[in-house]
Simulated scan of single mutants.
Amino acid sequence: MHFTDAIAFAFDGQLTTFGEKVVVGGFEMLGIFDRGYLPVDVGGQVAMASTAPTLTIKEGIVTLTTKTAVSVRGEGYSIIEIQPDGAGAVRLVLREA
């Protein structure tokens, strides 16, 4: 098994264990939702953080753009950044709609 295949297999297990039903671009799927702190570069020496929510899903299920609608736990979000991991998953940085 190739390393990226092993990572994809492990992510499938994470989705099954920690994922919840979400709707992305009109398609229902499993995703891992998080509201963890993210670093924010404000161009200075002082570190800042943001609590932008993120959603990690399998890559390739739906075409993603910053106009793609996302719904998690009945709340609407818009995508502000798309971060593919190169191993079959993509992290979406969200903003409440």
Results as ranks from 00 to 15, higher is better:
22 V>G: 10
31 G>C: 02
39 P>K: 06
73 R>W: 01
76 G>M: 09
58 K>G: 07
2 H>W: 11
90 V>I: 06
91 R>A: 07
32 I>P: 00
43 G>R: 03
11 F>P: 04
56 T>V: 04
14 Q>N: 10
62 V>G: 05
10 A>C: 09
9 F>S: 14
83 Q>W: 12
59 E>D: 14
9 F>R: 14
63 T>L: 13
87 A>G: 05
78 S>E: 13
45 Q>N: 08
60 G>L: 10
58 K>Y: 06
47 A>F: 05
6 A>D: 05
93 V>D: 00
38 L>H: 10
31 G>A: 05
15 L>F: 00
56 T>C: 02
37 Y>K: 15
53 P>C: 02
30 L>H: 04
62 V>Q: 11
34 D>H: 07
77 Y>M: 03
51 T>I: 14
46 V>T: 09
68 T>N: 07
61 I>W: 15
43 G>A: 00
82 I>M: 10
43 G>S: 00
40 V>A: 08
51 T>C: 08
38 L>R: 14
57 I>F: 04
13 G>M: 05
80 I>Y: 04
3 F>G: 12
83 Q>S: 11
82 I>A: 04
72 V>H: 01
48 M>Y: 13
24 V>M: 12
21 K>G: 07
8 A>C: 04
20 E>L: 05
33 F>R: 03
87 A>N: 13
65 T>L: 08
62 V>H: 08
31 G>V: 03
5 D>C: 10
68 T>Y: 09
36 G>S: 12
14 Q>R: 12
39 P>Y: 02
91 R>T: 12
82 I>P: 00
69 A>C: 05
8 A>P: 07
11 F>A: 06
50 S>T: 05
26 G>V: 01
49 A>H: 10
62 V>N: 07
42 V>R: 14
4 T>M: 14
16 T>P: 03
2 H>K: 15
30 L>G: 09
25 G>N: 10
79 I>R: 05
87 A>L: 08
30 L>N: 11
80 I>R: 11
16 T>G: 12
37 Y>F: 11
76 G>F: 07
34 D>M: 01
82 I>S: 03
1 M>W: 05
4 T>K: 15
24 V>L: 08
71 S>I: 07
7 I>A: 11
1 M>T: 03
17 T>A: 12
24 V>T: 08
79 I>V: 09
1 M>E: 08
44 G>E: 00
62 V>W: 07
20 E>K: 06
40 V>S: 01
87 A>F: 13
8 A>H: 06
82 I>E: 01
28 E>L: 08
4 T>H: 15
61 I>Y: 14
57 I>S: 01
63 T>D: 15
82 I>C: 07
52 A>Y: 01
62 V>R: 09
69 A>T: 11
5 D>R: 15
50 S>E: 05
59 E>M: 11
53 P>W: 00
30 L>C: 07
78 S>A: 13
57 I>D: 01
